[in-house]
Computed example of a mutant assay.
Amino acid sequence: MGKTALITGASSGIGRDLTKLFARDGYDLVLVARSESVLSRLTKELQEQFGISVKVIVKDLALPASPVEIYEELQKESIRVNVLVNNAGFGLYGFFSETDGQAEWEMIQLNIAALTQLTKLFLPAMMERGEGKILNVASMAAFQPGPLMAVYYATKAYVLSFSEALANELQGTGVSVTALCPGPTSTGFEKRAGLEQSKLFKSGTMDSETVANIGYVGLMQNKTVVIPGLKNKLMAFSVRFLPRNTVTRIVRMVQGKLKHEPRTPSQNIKA
């Protein structure tokens, strides 16, 4: 039997680029996102180019029932998931006192709860078979607090901590867990979140295809933490040696826009 990869947030950015890498290597795919039309076009492209089987599941993972619904649908169709890619997520920019509380609750549900529940649901079968891989897309945001994106940074810290702990627990089982921690990446996130003029994105970005390639190689090599780019590696390493209040001030400085720091929340974005 062939192998199957389930990828959330597959409609754009890093998730979309990962679908092509798995398809290239002969994986059948289960693609999860909110946009049926985008997933349908992607499915046609992948099937024509690689001749693989693609199943589309249109779900909003910010809804608490979605992970179980995805799992039960695949169980009914006897689709075995060999690789789980928890890529879906979104960020919200602005002062916590002024941002949309409902949007932040949905962010926590998507970035943390859905990722955790999908892992909980699909992991036991991987362990029983003695093989499997899980890729959790975290962020460079995982390594420090993030003023002006306080909840987003906190959710990514959870993803990194959870992934590292789980990777340790699974040693010797044949199942690996990898946390991908990209820095600023050109995926459309910065434009729709209102961060194009921030020093963070003005200092340079990586393209999503490069990030996806690095993450995919790290996953296949069973690495626990993958940080794309030398600059990002140095940043992740350097924050260990600075006082936490200094790190927080630096993040606040680069998060703020170059000319003006808004007092109202910017638009949020979902993957």
Rank of each mutant, 00 (worst) to 15 (best):
I134C: 14
L115N: 03
L200S: 11
G26A: 07
V247A: 09
N168L: 14
L230K: 00
V226R: 02
V32A: 12
S203E: 08
K202T: 01
V30H: 10
V217R: 15
D60M: 06
V226L: 11
E77F: 00
K191R: 15
T116W: 10
T155G: 10
K259P: 00
L195W: 08
Q102K: 15
Y27H: 07
S12A: 12
S208H: 11
K257S: 13
I214L: 14
S266A: 14
Q75R: 15
I112K: 00
L18A: 00
I70R: 08
R192M: 05
V83F: 12
S238D: 00
V137L: 12
L118F: 13
S176R: 04
S266H: 05
A138K: 03
A62K: 09
V239F: 07
M235F: 12
L180R: 00
V225R: 04
A212F: 01
L46F: 04
V38N: 15
D28V: 01
N268R: 15
A138D: 10
Q171A: 09
N86R: 10
L242V: 13
N213E: 14
L21S: 01
T19M: 04
F22H: 09
E36I: 02
E48M: 13
H260F: 14
T246W: 07
L84S: 05
A138H: 07
V159E: 01
L160S: 06
V38P: 00
N87S: 07
S163V: 06
M253S: 13
M126P: 05
M235R: 00
V175P: 05
R249N: 08
L46K: 06
T99K: 03
P262D: 04
V177W: 08
T205F: 07
F95H: 14
N111G: 13
F162K: 07
R263I: 10
F241E: 02
P124C: 12
I70Y: 05
A125E: 15
V54M: 02
G2P: 11
S78P: 00
V247M: 04
S203G: 13
D60S: 05
F237D: 05
Q255K: 06
P184Q: 03
A33H: 06
P243M: 07
V226E: 06
T246V: 12
A141C: 11
T246D: 00
S53M: 12
H260P: 00
L61Q: 02
P228L: 02
Q47S: 00
E98F: 05
S11N: 08
Q267G: 11
V177K: 08
Q255C: 08
K59T: 01
A141I: 03
K59E: 11
M126Q: 05
R129H: 08
K133E: 12
T173I: 09
A125H: 12
D100S: 14
N245K: 15
A62V: 01
V226W: 06
M127I: 14
F50Q: 12
M206D: 15
G101C: 12
S11Y: 02
S97C: 03
T210Y: 12
A157I: 01
G174M: 05
E164S: 04
L123R: 10
A33Y: 09
L135H: 04
Q171H: 09
A157K: 01
N87V: 07
L242I: 13
V68T: 10
S35N: 15
V137N: 09
G188Y: 02
A271H: 08
Y93P: 03
L200P: 11
P184R: 02
C181P: 06
K44V: 05
